[in-house]
Nucleic acid binder design. Structure first.
Lengths: 296, 296
DNA sequence: AGCGATCATAAATCCTCTTTATGACCTAGA
DNA sequence: TCTAGGTCATAAAGAGGATTTATGATCGCT
């Protein structure tokens, strides 16, 4: 499968006719016919129904075309980033975080670093579950607040923040008004989890195994905070979260109750080992100052 | 630029040596040498410094490789979605929304529809600014709560929700404790905005032009709620938002004050015209019931 | 100085993609 | 019912791109 084929596919979908798509792509109509046939062979799914009036997408074709479109957009970013390097754009520090990050520390550090470095653009970059680690490794951010545990191979990491954990419940839940809950008190509740993060991260958040040796009762999965909170609010499952999430995402249809017997969340500031980026070093210094409560 | 070249690029980056990368890719070493040279020509950026010990990434190369890696991941999703269709996975309704969506209606509708259709998996899909419209069009969701205004060409849309708007301020702001603010009272404040949404959407949210004919004072841009709120919290700019965002993202370092003289937000339930999906029709019926306050 | 490792280039070969030519099928209009 | 036009599929030929084999240049280490 190549980008050329995906371009053909998307254009055929847009135009609905092989002949006119061929014109738009500056190839002959049989070229598209062969390309489409080859791709359908390769992927095993027929993408278009053909008829005398042109082609129409199959249901499978619709989804494949959607993903093909995204692939072409992403491929354009390869060229775009090359172009930016050609133009010599520098002076940006991209700071990654997920959900509520390291709470106020996240916000204060970026603000303070920006104040001290007026020529530098400090961009907050929010990622979904645990993705900030991947983003560090593949260069989408320069530095990130990482929720531990995480695979820190090849990264430099310093713990900069710790906070207790809470359980998220629908506001009508029987336990919603408690001052504290132990994890075994919600042992039978389905628990929100995600497939997007490493298993170790998921298990840590789920407190798996539980103190009595049992496994959590797994509820539905989700890809981000809002999807998780939507399903907690509607009563489908509960979730475990850092205390800062309770404060940053304080929906009226949710209740947040402290978990009294679980390990608190540790947040590290991390960057790629050997990155030798003065902006990253400066930012880390600011975070250290703020985390230790030094006078500013 | 083709996926084959990106695969070569990423493998060379991983291995650090053309010879061993060639082995891994089942091609000869000169094939990689030529491919790399061609791609560097095409993109105009040198990706690797070559030397007797192998190759090392340039700074530009690092960013290009990161984007190339993402492109290959996304391309794999084309094959994955084709595979899912081959396996016949059906019975999923993907409900898109951004930020706080249509408030409680979003949550209640999905919960009620799931209750009535036990065999159907109703997935909440959160998107960033205005992206739910694009997601409808390219098939990533089946139905979505769309914040208007939006380009609804090719979509069926029904207004299902209306809510007032508020201004987001850092909690120490002079206007933070007001019961209401008119838009001209914050005319001089930098305003958060986004490049990810259509201009009409951005202008509507920014109340551009202002009642006195002036233009907003544009602040920094952002790509999602958290990035926006981080920058408001740190005092960089203010933001305009729907009232549900004040309730769902009630951070302690933010204040939300009603805007007294702006048009409220209207939210439409939308789907692709002619989609003829019984799940979508059923979901729309449930939303209509809930929106009109009918007895369940 | 010599050897081994690594990348670059030339020329030949292979193979893929595309073209030209044409057929099959369908639909609309006369 | 027949014909013409539009659309997609296929065959065969040709063009060109990608890769191979062969080999050279360079560098680092002994």
């Amino acid at each position: 499968m190549e980008l050329r084929q995906l371009r053909y596919l998307v254009t055929i979908a847009d135009v609905g006719n092989l002949g006119r798509a061929a014109e738009r792509l500056y190839v002959s109509q049989p070229a598209l016919s062969y390309a489409l046939k080859n791709l359908e062979s390769e992927l095993g799914v027929r993408r278009f129904d053909r008829h005398a009036g042109g082609v129409t997408e199959t249901v499978a074709g619709r989804d494949v075309v959607a993903e093909a479109r995204r692939t072409l957009l992403q491929a354009a970013r390869v060229a775009a980033v090359a172009e930016r390097h050609l133009r010599g754009e520098t002076g940006v520090l991209r700071v990654g975080f997920e959900a509520s990050g390291a709470g106020e520390l996240t916000t204060r550090a970026r603000a303070e670093f920006a104040r001290r470095n007026p020529g530098v653009r400090v961009e907050p970059k929010r990622f979904d579950w645990s993705e900030e680690v991947t983003a560090l490794r593949d260069g989408r951010v320069d530095v990130a607040f990482v929720w531990l545990p995480a695979d820190l191979a090849g990264l430099h990491a310093e713990i900069v923040h710790t906070e207790p954990r809470v359980v998220g419940l629908p506001s009508g839940h029987a336990l919603a008004r408690r001052d504290g809950i132990s994890v075994l008190e919600v042992n039978d509740e389905p628990l929100m989890w995600t497939e997007r993060a490493p298993r170790a991260w998921v298990d840590w958040w789920a407190v798996n195994p539980r103190p009595d040796g049992s496994a959590p009762r797994w509820g539905p999965t989700n890809d981000n905070v809002e999807e998780m909170l939507e399903q907690v609010a509607e009563g489908t499952a509960i979730c475990f979260a850092p205390h800062s999430m309770a404060r940053y995402y304080a929906r009226p249809d949710l209740a947040w109750v402290p978990l009294t017997d679980v390990e608190p969340l540790k947040v590290a500031l991390a960057w790629v080992d050997g990155a030798d980026n003065p902006l990253v070093r400066g930012f880390a210094a600011v975070v250290s100052e703020l985390a230790s409560g030094e006078a500013l």
